[in-house]
């Protein structure tokens, strides 16, 4: 963005956010290469504006409640590993906003997005400027080496395409994140997202059409494609986020463990169990899907 566009973006963000939130998000620091961008394409002004827009959804639409912030590391490299669901990935967005808005030390969390995002004009630029990175292993490594906080969905894009009858049943986790957590000595924070499954109940996946269009899935929901693009709007469910205790595999397993696929698999399954445990606990505590009462 040009300087005047940056000023406009910040003004707009300031008008959209409460003063305290704006102050928190402005306190985020980026690894500026000298032109207002970090090497991955992140631009602070776009990230702040993106946060301001996402915060509207966070606060007014999904009315997010979260707990377990006492477990969050205040600095250093860390992997956030949540369950993934909801057709469109609002879950990652809500976690990112929550980590800025409610953690003791606001942190910019970098999301790993699917490869096909890079094909999409405009969308790719906005995602990069807002801090998202294509989910390539090398990018993951570079972010951890720079002590960044990274959010990773080990269920992959398939996670958001879970059918209604499989809701809150986690797909088997990929193992790549465990390998990197061991190699780069990064703690893993399990996160449960409750609510996203109901925002767009997926009744069916039209696989042939998805294949034709190059998408990971083509959802049929009660509203899509019947209402056109409006059918993709998520329902105003209440989100609940639960952060678990960090799992420090690197304390017990040396980096060479990555050469042992069975152990790596077992560790990935442990993380999956931890996330599933948080999800089950969250579901037990939930009293209503929409819950329009209170904060």
């Amino acid at each position: 963005m040009k300087q005047h566009q940056r000023r406009t973006a910040l003004k707009l963000a300031k008008s959209l956010l409460p003063a305290e939130e704006f102050k928190r998000v402005m306190s985020l620091k980026i690894n500026d290469t000298g032109f207002g961008y970090d090497p991955f394409g992140l631009e602070k002004e776009t990230a702040v504006l993106g946060f301001a827009l996402a915060w509207q959804l966070y606060h007014y639409w999904f009315r997010v409640q979260s707990s377990g912030q006492e477990h969050l590391p205040e600095g250093g490299r860390v992997l956030y590993v949540p369950n993934h669901s909801g057709v469109l990935p609002f879950d990652g967005m809500m976690i990112a906003v929550d980590l800025v808005s409610r953690s003791a030390q606001p942190r910019l969390v970098r999301g790993m997005v699917d490869h096909f995002m890079g094909f999409l004009p405009f969308v790719n630029t906005f995602f990069y400027r807002a801090g998202q990175v294509v989910g390539a292993r090398r990018n993951f490594v570079d972010l951890l080496e720079r002590d960044e906080a990274v959010i990773v969905f080990p269920e992959g894009a398939k996670g958001t395409g879970k059918r209604w009858h499989n809701r809150y049943r986690l797909l088997r986790f990929n193992v790549g994140f465990v390998e990197l957590a061991l190699q780069y000595r990064a703690p893993i924070v399990p996160v449960a997202v409750i609510g996203a499954e109901e925002q767009a109940p997926m009744l069916h996946n039209l696989k042939p059409l998805a294949k034709l269009m190059g998408f990971p899935y083509f959802p049929i929901t009660p509203f899509f494609p019947w209402l056109g693009p409006f059918g993709m709007l998520p329902l105003p469910v209440r989100y609940h986020l639960y952060y678990g205790k960090p799992i420090d595999f690197y304390r017990d397993y040396p980096p060479e463990t990555v050469k042992d696929p069975a152990t790596v698999r077992m560790l990935a399954d442990k993380v999956q169990l931890a996330v599933q445990g948080l999800v089950d606990e969250g579901l037990r505590r939930r009293t209503s899907i929409f819950d329009f009462t209170g904060e």
Binding site: P39, H115, M117, G118, V133, V134, R138, N139, D142
Partner: peptide
């Protein structure tokens, strides 16, 4: 160069 490239190429 492809969209799936990492940002840094070694």
């Amino acid at each position: 160069l492809r969209p799936s490239n990492p940002v840094f190429l070694d």
